[in-house]
């Protein structure tokens, strides 16, 4: 019994220690961000590997999610004779929820795991240490640009996801199922609010981008510098990111749409 409590205590202490290190790490990154504006090409290169390389998966997933929403939504709405509302259904579910959340989950799987593996590998091959000995702060030179790139890429990817999804739903709804295109767009426009729906979706995706990139970079930087340790850190990135995204999504949704 005592043993159980002790191991629980040890786990708790370990978790808090990691949390503390994670926050110090974040502070260090944030301190490095102003310097990035002098060397923005570093960030641009990272936007390429973080954002552009995630584009394909986002485009394809967005299209299919939108098409499925179109089919499912139509089948439900047609029972009420309200198939003209398909546009609203699709746009609100994509812009408010699916766009930010699904693209953040995909981002964690594609870019987050790659970031952790890359940083972990740089650590295990002494590249970070080597940089430190060359009097270059690896957090400012390597980590901060990647963080910034994640912050920039995530909202763009979420917006692309939502836009492609709406187009996919329109293709299915109008092209396949024959929903009137005027009704589709006009109802959507009437019911989707720029501030309440679209901006809140964008805010969500910025928060998710922040958290996922932070987790990915911290796990990489904190990984045990062996191939096994890096592998484990990569898994942790994906799992912890998913938890963080879904948990934060609930909190943000409650804050944004709770009082309506």
């Amino acid at each position: 019994m005592i043993k159980l409590i002790r191991s629980l205590g040890r786990w708790g202490l370990g978790t808090f220690e990691r949390l503390g290190r994670g926050h110090l790490f974040l502070m260090h990154i944030l301190a490095g961000i102003p310097g990035l504006f002098l060397r923005f090409s570093l960030v641009i290169h990272q936007v390429y590997s973080v954002g552009v390389l995630s584009l394909l998966i986002i485009l394809i997933s967005g299209l299919f999610v939108g098409m499925v929403l179109g089919l499912q939504g139509y089948n439900t709405l047609v029972d009420f004779g309200a198939e003209e509302s398909l546009g609203v259904l699709v746009s609100l579910s994509l812009v408010r929820e699916l766009g930010p959340v699904v693209s953040a989950l995909l981002f964690a799987g594609r870019a987050g795991s790659a970031l952790t593996a890359e940083i972990g590998l740089m650590k295990s091959t002494e590249q970070l240490s080597g940089m430190e000995m060359m009097a270059v702060d690896p957090i400012r030179r390597v980590i901060a640009p990647r963080f910034m790139a994640g912050l920039i890429s995530m909202p763009l990817l979420a917006a692309i996801f939502s836009a492609v999804g709406i187009i996919g739903a329109f293709l299915v709804g109008h092209g396949l199922l024959g929903v009137d295109d005027g009704a589709f767009w006009s109802q959507m426009q009437a019911k989707t609010d720029f501030y309440d729906d679209i901006m809140n979706g964008v805010i969500k995706s910025v928060v998710f981008g922040f958290v996922v990139t932070w987790i990915a970079l911290f796990e990489g930087h904190d990984a045990t510098p062996t191939s096994e340790g890096v592998g484990r850190a990569t898994t942790r990135t994906v799992v912890h990111s998913a938890f963080a995204i879904l948990g934060l999504d609930f909190v943000l949704t409650a804050l944004m749409f709770g009082d309506e």
Binding site: V47, Y48, G51, L55, I152, P155, L156, A159, I160
Partner: peptide, 9 residues
Amino acid sequence: FVAVGIAAL
């Protein structure tokens, strides 16, 4: 990429 993202927004 950035242009496409902004266009989507």
